[in-house]
């Protein structure tokens, strides 16, 4: 079985994102970029499935600018076998990403797609679901554990109220949650090996998909600065302030 893992290049999670002065978006100029942490978990899970013998090949795909190639190399250093860059400079929404992924998946014909539940830049939490719908495949989202057996996949989902276990027929789409695994390090020898692994580039416009944006960004602003706290002398004052000033009780 082949596993396809879509990955995204995002502003590194250690960086405090900065809104552009004209409020049109987040400034990414010169900012450190890395693989979306949930996608790292997806790569790790796919590689583990291959190591256990449940899969034979792991293919990573990213859609975006040429500068996203290092993210694919990192995924291959973690163990993915080959990579595809669907090259475009356009701003992409989950719908467009899912449509492009579908073309790639139709071509690659995998038995499983493992991807992050959301990207930490736009927090959309939509691409996996849209992709499953467009492929007409079952989906297991927010996975905290995954087992493949007899053409089926068992996914433990981190639902709101607790854990939910679902069993899906393959092929299926699984999206990863934080607790699924702890991704391995890309070690030096593996980084060197990854440089020689195949990386195919496909121009997005050749795939015949309408990726025009459907949403309009009106304004991006930074969260308000937290006001300094005050010390109260006792319970009476606290209750008084909560009632009269904060008006929460």
């Amino acid at each position: 079985m082949k596993i396809v893992v879509p990955v995204k290049r995002v502003v590194d999670y250690n960086i405090k994102p900065r809104v552009k002065a004209d409020n049109s978006g987040v400034d990414t100029q010169g900012v450190k970029m890395s693989m979306n942490p949930f996608d790292e978990i997806a790569v790790e899970e796919a590689v583990r499935l291959r190591e256990k013998g449940a899969a034979s090949e792991v293919v990573v795909v990213t859609i975006g600018v040429t500068e996203a190639q290092p993210v694919l190399r990192t995924a291959m250093a973690m163990g993915a076998d080959r990579a595809i860059l669907v090259q475009t400079d356009a701003e992409l929404e989950p719908l467009a990403v899912a449509k492009l992924l579908k073309v790639i998946i139709d071509r690659e014909n995998p038995g499983l797609v493992v991807m992050g539940k959301q990207a930490i830049d736009d927090d959309m939490n939509a691409t996996g679901q849209i992709l499953a719908a467009r492929l007409n495949w079952p989906q297991g989202t927010f996975a905290s554990s995954v087992t493949v057996e007899d053409g089926r996949i068992t996914v433990v989902r981190e639902a709101d109220g607790g854990l939910e276990t679902v069993r899906l027929a393959l092929p299926a789409v699984v999206t990863t949650d934080l607790r699924l695994n702890e991704p391995r390090y890309a070690t030096m020898p593996n980084i060197m090996k990854a440089k020689k692994k195949p990386l195919e580039t496909i121009a997005a416009e050749t795939l015949g998909v309408d990726i025009a944006p459907r949403l309009e960004t009106v304004k991006v602003v930074e969260p308000p600065v937290r006001q300094a706290g005050i010390k109260v002398t006792g319970v009476a004052e606290l209750v008084g302030k909560l009632r009269d000033e904060a008006k929460v009780i």
Binding site: E182, P183, R184, Y185, T187, M188, P189
Partner: peptide, 8 residues
């Protein structure tokens, strides 16, 4: 640790 990787 669980994802220990030896140095080179």
């Amino acid at each position: 640790g669980p994802n220990f990787a030896p140095g080179m």
